[in-house]
Each structure stands twice: as structure tokens, then as C-alpha cells.
Design a protein around this nucleic acid. Structure first.
Length: 554
RNA sequence: GCGCCUGUAGCUCAGAUGGAUAGAGCAACGGACUUCUAAUCCGUAGGUCGCAGGUUCGAGUCCUGCCAGGCGUACCA
């Protein structure tokens, strides 16, 4: 629709110049917007104001020239007005909205899809929580955002791969092993002081008990180093499989689980370091190896190999990101907790140093989730290892509510997640507000069938009866859906879809309360059924992109 | 100190590329179920867009400075 108006304006401009109504043939990008006020038309453009300086003419006069030259032979426009300082407002003929209905029904599950991705390989890496403890709410937000972005990109024609990076090497894993081993020894009555730098959570004790159950006291007879290592392997495996279960029950499936250890084993970390050394962008200072990230926009250089010979987390990240590009991804998207934002410049530096363009790399930062209950903060202490896990949240409020609520905010603003509110089945809870539309329409359709309207098909005569303002409003809203999908994809902002759905839901509820779909007039009923079935499909498609179900009944 | 994010109605938040009179929801108040699902709808009220300058026909949006909150600023991850 916008595109059509745009091209009509462009030809009007050319024609106006040819007629001598305009001074210059230069045409800037025409921007079509949807005014907030109905009185300002369905669409409007500010092109006359933009052209004022180029044409050296007053905007009003330019606007007039455009309007006079616009082709409206097919009565696409009801009227075109010039308003304010030079806005041109377009009022679309009602009938022009009807084709969108047909399109929705025909495309069905594909309505809103596009090919802006052109099959490009793109990777979304998210959650990537260390296998040293269970997933908490914050990870849930990252999972919801990442999965939804992947869905949306996929819908837009990208070839998307979802990846989880497992930090299964290095210090945090050996700390995990130590933590479990200490608890294990405690189980055999050994009196020990549990170190502060170890993981404090109760789940560590559970893991120790698990080991005891399987291995008895065998680990006590091993060298401490071996025992710790065995504990680490056991615990990390166990935790990882629980993480997988949690994500699965959250409806998130990854295409690839990438092990940090594997890039050490394949020698890619060593190779990356060597490569940078050859390029003279890694140097030795005070016994440690430093990467000159400052040459690539970071504020200072960073250590990749410590004095003690161990690599830093950054070293494996360099190799990991190189590996991503080597796997043929044209774009990579990392989703991180916002507390890691300081890490962006150095990863970007490493990408540039590896010869890739840094604008093929995006980071989405996810701000904190404040867990509340009835408006009051839920006490959590990471230090004491007490936090509400994702599993508990899903169990309490349900997967749909959790996913939807995580997507009700732009990811870079903090999110209040109220457990009580998430369970409420009222207007306060946006999930049910949207799902209810789907259920209501399903119910109407069932009723329609009972009344003998079995086939809901395009019927020009019936469709032409859709003239109520609320009906046109629904058509306009549904017409916007494909553009919302694209915007969400381009800006990597799934919350746009969430807001759109709440908006469409609101338009539907308004319509529902004012007009009866099934009424005395069979023809009108038929047209309205065709309309609401389209709404149902759009809601379903939108919810699917968010990973939320669309129930037939509630 | 420096860097990033945030600051919009009492509360929680939308407002891409600068556009017309800044929008929702909640809470408050008043209404609507003999009707296709009231998990809904309608109405009323609510604002110095943190503050101060600047850019221009026009700024919540762009620039500069300040204020407040969060996070970061390791040879931790």
C-alpha cells in the first residue's frame, strides 16, 4: 500500500516537472507515514516540505503540483488533502483494503514472510550459560529474545542457525569440580570449610549425592586432582543436560551446541594466537601475551595468555568468532547479558583483526530481569546461590506467559517480571489478552459451522459489506503485519511484534463488542467470518514468531 | 575518573530514518453481560518527554554541557 502510494507520488513528481509545475527534476526519497489522527488520512507524506529548498518553492505550492498530477483514475483515493505546512494526506477508498484479506487467506502460514534475507547464512548465538548451575530468569529472557529473533529472521528469508556456546573449559569448570568434591567429602563426614569462591548453591550438594549414589566412596581413594576432574565432568554433563531439558520445556531448540573445549582440542586457539603474533598484533609484556585491541578501537590492550601460561576466556572467544565466520556465516549475532557490554569492543577488535568487517557482527544486550511477586522483589542472592530458576518460573506461570512477558520490553531496558501478574487471567496480563482473540475467533467459527456456514471463502459481494470503521481498522492493522515483521528483523527487536499483536488484539476486541459476526444477514455474516478468520491467522503467525501458542479455546 | 545503557502521565512502558494536537496498559472514577467466550468493551481524568543551551520551517527523536539511576572499567568468566 505504502509502496503503491510512493510510486504514484514519484510519477506525479516527474509529470509535474514535465508540465513545468516544478523547477527541478531532482526527487529525494519519498517517505510515507501513517498519521495518528484519522482526520489526517490513512497515509501522509511530507515530501512537499522536503522539496521546498530543492525546488525553491513554497511547500504548499509543491503539494498542489503533486496532487494535481497524481493518477487516481482507478479511484484508489477517496480524497487527497493538503494540510498544515504542506503535508499531503491520502484517504484510501475502502475497497482498496479488501485485497489484503484474500492475500492473508491465500498465503496463510506464510503471510508476513519475505525474502529480505535472500537465503544468507546468519547465526544467532544465545543463552550460552556456563554449565556450572541451573538457568535462572535472566537466561530465560535471553532465550526468549534469541529464539524469537531467530524465528523472525527465518521468516524473512535468512538461513538461520541457533547456537549455544558451552563454556566447558577453564577455571569455572574446575571450580565446579572442586565445589562438588568438597560437598562429596562432606557427605562422608569429613569436616571441611567450604571455600567462598566455590559455588554455594544447594544443587552442588545434590550433585555430590548423585555421585555418591553411583560411585560410593570410590572418589575418596583417587588422587585429589583426578577426583576433582571426575566431579567436574560428571557435574557439567549433568547440569548441561538439565539446561537442555529446561530449554526444551521452554520451547527453545538449538541447532548446534558448540563446546569451548573443542576449539582448544582442534588447535584453533593456538593457531589464532600464532596468527596474531605473526601479524605483530600480539606482544609480550611482563610475561603475559597481550593483544593490541587498542589498535582496533578498544580503549586498551587485553591479555590473551596469562603469565601462568593459561589462556584467558578472551583467547578462546577470538578463535570462536573466527570459527563462526569460517563456517560461512555472513552475519553473526551474539546475545549477551548487559553486564558484558564492556566486552563488545574487544570482540569487535578481534573480528576486525581477523580481516572480517565488524559490521557483520551484532551484539544484543539483555538487561536485567527483576523478579517480583505482587509488586515486591523476590529475594535472590547469587553469592549464596539462591535464585529462582527458569524451571520454577515456567512451572509456576507457564511457558506462554513467560515467553510473552520477556518480549514485552525492548531488550535494553530492565524488565519487571511479576510472578503473580503473569498468572493472572485478566487484562493486566497481555499474553491472555492476545491469545483470547484467537480462542474467541475459533469459537465463532465453530458456532458458524453449527449454523451451517461450513466454507469460509472469498465472496466479493459479502466482502463489500465490510464497511464499518472497526472493520477497516482491522484491515489496515493486518495490512501492516508484513512490515512489522521486517522491522523486527532489521532492527532485531522482537518486542515490536509483541506490541503489534496487543494492538491488533485490541482492535479485534473493540470490533467484537460492537458488531456481531454471526447475525441475521447470511451474506454479511459470511463476509465477517472471512474477516475474523484472517485476524485469527495473523494472530497465530505473530504468536508463532514469539514462540507462544495460539489456543483454540481458553 | 572514563565508557555503555536508562530517564516520557501516579505506576509499567511504546514512540526507526527529525513532522501535524506526544500514545498504550495499569491504578482512579463512571458505565456495558437474556447476545458469537466479560480472560472483553465504552467513557472521564491524567504531561515542562530529567535540566539547560544549540542546530532548523519543525526536536521526545540530532549536537554540546550538566543532573539522577543501573552496569562495566581484571593476567575473572
Amino acid at each position: 500500500m505504502k509502496y503503491k502510494i510512493k510510486s504514484l507520488i514519484n510519477s506525479a513528481l516527474t509529470q509535474a516537472y514535465n508540465n513545468g509545475d516544478l523547477n527541478s527534476p531532482e526527487i529525494p526519497e519519498v517517505i510515507i507515514e501513517e498519521p495518528k489522527l484519522g482526520a489526517q488520512g490513512d497515509y501522509s507524506t511530507n515530501i512537499a516540505m522536503i522539496l521546498a529548498s530543492i525546488q525553491k518553492m513554497p511547500p504548499q505550492k509543491i503539494a498542489k503540483a503533486i496532487v494535481n498530477n497524481i493518477n487516481n483514475s482507478d479511484s484508489f483515493f477517496d480524497k487527497i488533502e493538503i494540510a498544515g505546512p504542506g503535508f499531503i494526506n491520502f484517504f484510501i477508498n475502502k475497497a482498496a483494503w479488501y485485497p489484503v484479506l484474500k492475500q492473508i487467506h491465500q498465503m496463510d502460514l506464510e503471510y508476513g514472510a519475505s525474502n529480505i534475507g535472500k537465503g544468507k547464512k546468519i547465526q544467532v548465538e544465545f543463552v550460552s550459560a556456563n554449565p556450572t548451575g541451573p538457568l535462572h530468569v535472566g537466561h530465560g529472557r535471553g532465550a526468549a529474545v534469541g529464539d524469537s529473533i531467530a524465528n523472525i529472521l527465518n521468516f524473512c528469508g535468512f538461513n538461520v542457525e541457533k547456537e549455544y556456546y558451552i563454556n566447558d573449559s577453564g577455571r569455572q569448570i574446575s571450580t565446579l569440580g572442586r565445589s562438588v568434591f568438597f560437598r562429596y567429602k562432606e557427605l562422608f563426614g569429613e569436616d571441611i570449610v567450604f571455600p567462598e569462591d566455590c559455588y554455594q548453591g544447594k544443587y552442588i550438594i545434590d550433585l555430590a549425592e548423585n555421585i555418591k549414589l553411583i560411585n560410593g566412596d570410590n572418589f575418596l581413594n583417587l588422587e585429589e586432582e583426578t577426583a576433582v576432574k571426575n566431579c567436574a565432568i560428571f557435574a557439567a554433563d549433568k547440569i548441561l543436560s538439565e539446561i537442555k531439558e529446561d530449554l526444551d520445556s521452554f520451547g527453545v531448540q538449538f541447532d548446534n551446541w558448540f563446546s569451548e573445549q573443542s576449539i582448544f582440542d582442534s588447535g584453533k586457539v593456538a593457531k589464532a594466537i600464532e596468527n596474531f603474533q605473526n601479524k605483530k598484533i600480539i606482544y609480550n609484556k611482563e610475561g603475559a601475551l597481550w593483544f593490541k585491541t587498542s589498535k582496533f578501537g578498544d580503549e586498551k590492550d587485553r591479555v590473551v595468555v596469562r603469565k601462568n601460561g593459561l589462556t584467558t576466556y578472551f583467547a578462546s572467544d577470538i578463535a570462536y568468532h573466527q570459527d563462526k565466520f569460517n563456517r560461512g556465516f555472513e552475519r553473526i549475532i551474539d546475545i549477551w547479558g548487559a553486564d558484558h557490554h564492556g566486552y563488545i569492543p574487544r570482540i569487535a577488535a578481534s573480528i576486525e583483526a581477523s580481516g572480517e568487517s565488524r559490521n557483520r557482527f551484532d551484539v544484543i544486550l539483555i538487561q536485567l530481569v527483576n523478579l517480583l511477586r505482587d509488586g515486591l522483589p523476590v529475594a535472590m542472592s547469587t553469592r549464596a546461590g539462591e535464585f529462582v530458576t527458569l524451571k520454577e518460573v515456567i512451572k509456576e506461570v507457564g511457558r506462554d506467559a513467560a515467553r510473552f512477558i520477556f518480549l514485552t520490553r525492548n531488550s535494553d531496558s530492565p524488565l519487571d517480571f511479576d510472578l503473580e501478574l503473569a498468572k493472572k487471567k485478566t487484562n493486566d496480563n497481555p499474553v491472555y489478552y492476545v491469545q483470547y482473540v484467537h480462542a474467541r475467533i475459533s469459537s465463532i467459527i465453530r458456532k458458524g459451522k453449527e449454523n451451517g456456514i461450513a466454507d469460509i471463502n472469498w465472496n466479493a459481494e459479502a466482502i463489500n459489506m465490510l464497511t464499518e470503521p472497526e472493520e477497516i481498522d482491522l484491515l489496515k492493522s493486518m495490512n501492516r503485519f508484513p512490515e512489522i515483521v521486517k522491522q523486527s528483523a532489521i532492527r532485531l527487536e522482537p518486542h515490536r511484534m509483541t506490541f503489534y499483536l496487543m494492538n491488533l488484539a485490541s482492535s479485534f476486541h473493540t470490533y467484537y463488542n460492537k458488531h456481531r459476526v454471526l447475525n441475521d444477514d447470511p451474506l454479511l455474516s459470511c463476509g465477517r467470518l472471512y474477516l475474523v478468520l484472517a485476524v485469527k491467522k495473523v494472530i497465530r503467525n505473530g504468536l508463532r514468531l514469539l514462540g507462544v501458542s495460539a489456543p483454540e479455546a481458553m
